[in-house]
């Protein structure tokens, strides 16, 4: 990755038809760090992520979205969702190189081959998504994100549909490959947040609070007692706050 890696600050409120989704939000997403937005389903985590991605949200956002380098986020963001979003009619190779084709550019074949091999799908490049397992499909989605090579990556619960073992492996893989990009991870799993993120925010009942996170390096070992302790504390905090 050659482009500069910005930090992002979001301030403001959002709502729809008089119902406030969040108010007085102030969230800082550190440059080259993992920031986690944690909270139960339906509180507006994905809406916030969609605002950053420049996608439709069906809410009115009143606020500012600033980057440390002053350059707008458009064109510098890639997106990985809970669903792998692989096009079922295209091969893994075509799916990974989709961004280039959508922009009318010729895919860099050397990079394409390397990225697919890096996520362990070298033998599956010519297969269709339907021929792969859930974990392999998420690896392909990661390869597509790596191929985009953007400085900002938005992750919308990308591990939540995987089984525990595959989810853990994917977390390691994503953390290793996305390197020092600016990352916002939306999740409802406190364990994931503690292991992966430099900064953790909890979104609930319309407000966002920052909670204490562990010190680097990330990802932290899952057997680390500190991870267990922080995960339990975080879980207790979420339960207490949501009643």
């Amino acid at each position: 990755m050659t482009a500069s890696v910005p930090s992002i600050t979001v301030r403001g409120s959002a709502g729809h038809d008089g119902t406030m989704l969040f108010d007085g939000l102030e969230m800082h997403i550190g440059a080259g760090q993992w920031t986690c937005l944690l909270g139960p389903s339906g509180v507006g985590k994905s809406t916030l992520l969609r605002l950053l991605a420049g996608l439709d949200t069906h809410v009115d956002f009143n606020g500012t979205l600033e980057t440390s380098d002053g350059i707008p986020l458009a064109g510098r963001v890639s997106y990985m969702a809970q669903s792998d979003l692989l096009l079922p009619w295209a091969t893994i190779c075509d799916n990974v190189g989709l961004g280039s084709r959508l922009r009318g550019e010729k895919p860099n074949l050397e990079k394409l081959t390397k990225v697919i091999a890096d996520v362990g799908l070298g033998d599956h490049a010519e297969k269709r998504p339907g021929q792969l397992s859930g974990g392999q499909r998420q690896r392909a989605a990661l390869a597509r994100t790596l191929m985009e090579d953007t400085p900002v990556v938005l992750l919308d619960e990308p591990f939540s549909s995987l089984d525990a073992r595959t989810s853990f492996d994917m977390q390691e893989l994503v953390a290793r490959h996305l390197g020092r990009r600016t990352i916002l991870l939306v999740t409802h799993d406190p364990g994931e947040a503690v292991r992966l993120c430099h900064r953790i925010y909890i979104l609930k009942q319309g407000r966002v609070d920052q909670v204490e996170s562990l010190a680097p390096p990330f990802p932290r070992d899952f057997a680390d007692p500190e991870v267990f302790a922080r995960q339990s504390a975080l879980m207790a905090r979420i339960r207490e706050d949501t009643g």
Binding site: G54, L55, L85, R103, G104
Partner: peptide
Amino acid sequence: YLDLATTMGTTKWR
């Protein structure tokens, strides 16, 4: 799929 395409910076016809 359309959201993904939007984040990738595509045109309407592509």
